[in-house]
Design a protein around this nucleic acid. Structure first.
Lengths: 242, 242
DNA sequence: AAGTGGTCTAGACCACGTC
DNA sequence: ACGTGGTCTAGACCACTTT
């Protein structure tokens, strides 16, 4: 037999790709259902079982959400329960608290070497820098500074940020069509400098978590690089190992 | 029809339980293969597809490992590549480094209220306390203090710890038959006190990660409660969000 | 060649939600 | 009653490893 599959890819992986392409193209919007498995099977010319395996994989990656009896939905950052997915903070007693975001600064700039490397663009490309404060139960807990590809976020201004009540990722999703799929975080411990201490309402030299995040959209494309400083006097960063 | 399934449980979940029971009973040892899907299907009187679904789930939880053409294996902490699973530290440049463990203290005691609550035992039950230092490339980076149910770890002494070259979890697995399946971690930032600073070779009041971990064995039984202090001058705590 | 897991199919039936 | 996803089956064939 000819060994004709050095790039062998199972059918369900190809179906998976087709579904992701449709999501990227905006054929199905966040929060809405996608066509039924039967219909997708017909459309793609495969059996329902093969579509099922593709959807299973996307559901396990939190890109789709299955609901028995109702259909399969495109996951959305609008869902308030999804907020914890990308902000792993819990109150010391384990409670999940919904933070409120307060923008501090929003400016357009050119990518420096570090931002360019992380975002996978050329040095000097247009980017947007956003600084904001997160309050939990009224108390400032997180200060974030993030860098976004300018091209992907036209018209992102201080006013837009101020008018938005919800998570940043739900703004990105609904206003700019940019959906965060996964992220990598690097956590270290640092000391609060004077400026940060003032904003967070803690003493200078208070220990803080430094959480550097690179967030990816479809196709593992990096679209956001951010660094957050977390005060962990009343909250902790929760993680699950398995 | 009678609504006879308030406690409905799919067949594959039951098969999953049977497999976990066999693992708990020690029928199949870490690193070894389990019987083939065909054989399990025969033994349990279900189709191969149902066994497959059960095994799929256990593989996704890192309890089993599938290897095409070879069989399905019981995962083991002996595998050096599995060390990162429960110790999420990488060098600043992203390299994975294999740490060396150095025991500092090992004593038996009675559970205080906090340890008892976390381990799910009565106050006063026998426990073992272990303190140890982790070195990465010669440098001290982590100091750990852990509490274990005394009953589950008979004969765990300083000598045993000193003689062991490998991860603690591989020692627990091979010598005591206790296998860690998953864990929850709470991460905060704290300041090094004088004693800790000395051991880690950093200045007093250096910011450190405080990583509190509760580790579970089969059946979500808590068996280890530990707190680690991580120096993040040369390493970071890596996490993947999705 | 034989044995393992991996993929794909087709069809039956169950559980859940909506009409 | 109907449509959706969820489970279960039986069988065929593919890809990988070992004998």
């Amino acid at each position: 037999m000819a060994q004709e599959s050095p790039t062998f890819s199972p059918l369900y992986k190809q179906i998976r790709s087709l579904i992701v392409q449709a999501l990227e193209a905006g054929d199905w919007q966040p929060g809405q259902t996608i066509p039924s498995e039967q219909e997708l099977a017909l459309r793609f010319g495969v059996s329902q079982g093969t579509v099922r395996k593709a959807v299973d994989e996307l559901a396990s990656e939190n890109i789709l959400v299955r609901k028995q009896g109702k259909g399969t939905f495109v996951s959305t950052h609008q869902d308030p329960r999804a907020a914890f997915r990308f902000l792993r903070l819990k109150a010391l007693d384990g409670r999940l608290v919904q933070p409120k975001s307060m923008p501090l600064e929003c400016m357009r700039a050119k990518a420096g070497p570090e931002a360019a490397r992380n975002l996978g663009v050329e040095v000097g490309c247009p980017i947007v820098m956003v600084r904001r404060l997160l309050r939990f139960e009224g108390k400032p807990v997180v200060i974030d500074e993030m860098y976004l590809s300018g091209d992907a976020f036209p018209g992102l201004t201080m006013e837009v940020l101020k008018d938005w009540h919800g998570s940043l990722y739900s703004l990105f999703e609904s206003r700019f069509g940019v959906r965060m799929i996964r992220a990598e975080e690097k956590v270290r411990a640092i000391l609060a400098d004077k400026a940060v201490a003032e904003v967070l309402g803690v003493a200078e030299s208070t220990p803080l978590l430094s959480v550097e995040r690179l967030a990816f959209s479809y196709g593992d494309k990096p679209v956001e690089w951010r660094r957050g400083l977390y005060s962990t006097e009343d909250y902790y960063y929760a993680n699950e190992l398995s």
